[in-house]
């Protein structure tokens, strides 16, 4: 359960302020897929950053499973993120010069998973995205779709509770994009993982159980919120 209450994020000073996120309140039950929709500048990315603890709001609160993440110290937020959350980005951010294995290994190293347990987890994650045979290939040699699948493997390897995806199909053609979408939705369903997709793609948003439309930082309309 993610509860967002009266969230405000203000940029600028004195007379020159504007609210990127303006008094946003909603809650997302665990295991749901959520689309945060909006044009660029609507505040959807800022909202995602705040929800994941990467950014601090000006006011408001975020409770994740009853825990106020804004009251945590930086190192506890980091630790929370490494254990409970994961990210998928539009531009993949895979390390081109590293092997697929090492790319997927990074979140496990950050979460201090012991060396002996890592290998199995990495192999399982790569198998889940159908990339097992690429385990030793350099990430730079992969196609765009494969890179994003690798990024998905990296995101799910440590069994997160919340998966943030920022325009996950924005850099992909419709076929490979569809594959990645399927991967994400299936993973979310099968593992009861909350999937939060930030997008301006209405078709992708339709596949989500909950849709939150943002306009100028405010919630314009919602669908599916109970």
């Amino acid at each position: 359960m993610i509860e967002v209450t009266n969230l405000v994020k203000t940029y600028g000073k004195k007379d020159n302020t504007f609210n990127a996120v303006d008094d946003v309140t909603f809650s997302i039950p665990t295991g749901k897929s959520v689309a945060i929709l909006g044009k660029s500048g609507s505040g959807k990315s800022t909202l995602m950053h705040i929800m994941s603890g990467l950014d601090k709001p000006t006011s408001g609160s975020i409770l994740i499973d009853g825990k106020d993440i804004l009251s945590l110290k930086q190192k506890d937020i980091d630790s929370f993120r490494s254990k409970k959350m994961s990210f998928i980005f539009q531009s993949f951010f895979v390390q081109a010069k590293e092997s697929c294995y090492d790319n997927v290994s990074l979140p496990l190293e950050i979460a201090k998973i012991s060396y002996s347990r890592r290998k199995k987890m990495i192999e399982a994650a790569l198998a889940a995205v159908d990339m097992s045979e690429k385990i030793n290939a350099k990430a730079g040699e992969l196609s765009g779709g494969q890179k994003q699948r690798l990024a998905v493997a990296r995101a799910i390897v440590n069994s997160p509770k919340i998966l943030f995806a920022d325009e996950p199909t924005g850099n992909l053609d419709s076929v490979t994009g569809g594959m990645v979408e399927n991967l994400l939705f299936n993973y979310s369903k099968e593992n009861n993982v909350t999937l939060i997709i930030v997008t301006h793609d209405a078709d992708l948003a339709k596949r989500c159980e909950i849709q939150i439309h943002l306009k100028d930082g405010k919630i314009d309309s919602t669908r599916g919120i109970i």
Binding site: D78, S79, R81, K83, S86, F87, F93, L106
Partner: peptide, 14 residues
């Protein structure tokens, strides 16, 4: 820069 950003997003401590 991006690699560092990614590592920090994944929860790597300062």
């Amino acid at each position: 820069t991006q690699q560092i950003g990614l590592m920090k997003a994944l929860g790597m401590r300062r």
